[in-house]
């Protein structure tokens, strides 16, 4: 059996400073097949971005302690040296970020920022790299691409900047694309354009994609599978359709209840009372228990295991029935 594109087992990420240790990710495991798209849903501080960055060892190097197994495209990320990681980043796996204004270097042209990535990984000459940069801008549908090569990030609109960011990420045809809330900073009309572009590019280039977002609409638009994250753990995972229609975990139900979707005119949105736990100390039992309306004795002594009522859909909740 060939190994999946991404293979993560019991990933733990801790940020250690002199004042405190924050347990940002606590035992995350998942696999991603080639050409598959996974969406990690969660609120701020749930550890979703940290998980994503751990896949290419991009968290701040000196403060971050990683443990577990992370394999991407056959490379062992946890043990790889920084030098080795530099070869993997941008070629096997690359990332697009939430805020394209700050994620692009303000004093280098768009063309140069694309070309340098290609030159770094594929050893092309400057002229060849410039040519590839132009092709890439056309690939991400930037109008007047030739002129935009010489533009600086501040001269482009938010949508065009994000397209340029995507062009950089795709410049060396990665097998895995990581997207950290790629549409959060954009206008609603631009968001859908970017999502459609990403979905088309994923299909054309045959990439695996992992999306991080707190926007359920985005998840529904692009993902094959969805994982819901809370307090540094996956608490529910399943096909996007099943999870949207019938969330199992009370937290996932709460998230959906707090979101506007079609056919609910006149109904009130519900909220989840309370706030996520402080990750300086990981709770012993289910991390959601203090906020959960259905909490019972069994939730507290240990973290509930995944229970799966139907194949492929599972949640960490004691109330979920386990299929035989």
């Amino acid at each position: 059996m060939s190994e999946s594109l991404v293979h993560v087992r019991d990933l733990n990420v801790r940020f250690v400073t002199r004042d405190a240790t924050v347990n940002a990710v606590n035992g995350v495991s998942f696999d991603l097949a080639e050409r598959e798209s996974l969406c990690i849903l969660g609120e701020s501080g749930s550890g979703k971005s940290v998980t994503l960055r751990a896949l290419m060892a991009l968290n701040p190097p000196r403060r971050t302690k990683l443990s577990g197994t992370v394999r991407v495209g056959g490379h062992d990320i946890i043990t790889a040296s920084e030098r080795r990681m530099a070869d993997i980043r941008g070629s096997t796996v690359s990332m697009i970020f939430q805020e394209p204004m700050t994620a692009l270097d303000p004093v280098f042209t768009i063309g140069r920022q694309i070309a340098e990535t290609v030159m770094r990984h594929e050893g092309l000459s400057r002229a060849e790299a410039d040519k590839r940069a132009l092709e890439l801008l056309e690939l991400v549908q930037i109008p007047s691409a030739k002129r935009r090569l010489a533009a600086y990030p501040h001269e482009l609109s938010g949508g065009l900047r994000q397209r340029a960011m995507i062009a950089i990420a795709l410049s060396c045809r990665p097998k895995l694309l990581l997207a950290d809330e790629p549409t959060t900073a954009l206008d609603a009309t631009v968001q859908i354009q970017i999502l459609l572009l990403l979905r088309r590019l994923q299909q054309e280039m045959g990439m695996g994609v992992i999306f991080v977002t707190h926007d359920l609409g985005v998840a529904g638009e692009i993902a094959d599978r969805v994982a819901v994250m809370y307090a540094g753990k996956f608490i529910e995972e399943g096909p996007v359709r099943d999870l949207m229609r019938g969330p199992l975990h009370p937290y996932a139900q709460g998230l959906l209840g707090a979101t506007v979707h079609a056919g609910m005119r006149g109904e009130r949105l519900t909220t989840i009372p309370g706030a996520p736990p402080n990750l300086e100390r990981v709770p012993q039992g289910c991390a959601f228990a203090p906020r959960c309306p259905y909490v019972e004795e069994a939730c507290l002594p240990k973290v509930p295991d995944f229970r799966s009522p139907v194949p492929g859909h599972a949640a960490r909740c004691v109330r979920v029935p386990q299929a035989a």
Partner: peptide
Amino acid sequence: NQDFVTTLRGKGLRRGGIALHVVKN
């Protein structure tokens, strides 16, 4: 601490390549 330095690392640039960007900024 800027985001774009993370992008540069994410593109696979080595220390020298990143230094060039930092110097010009």
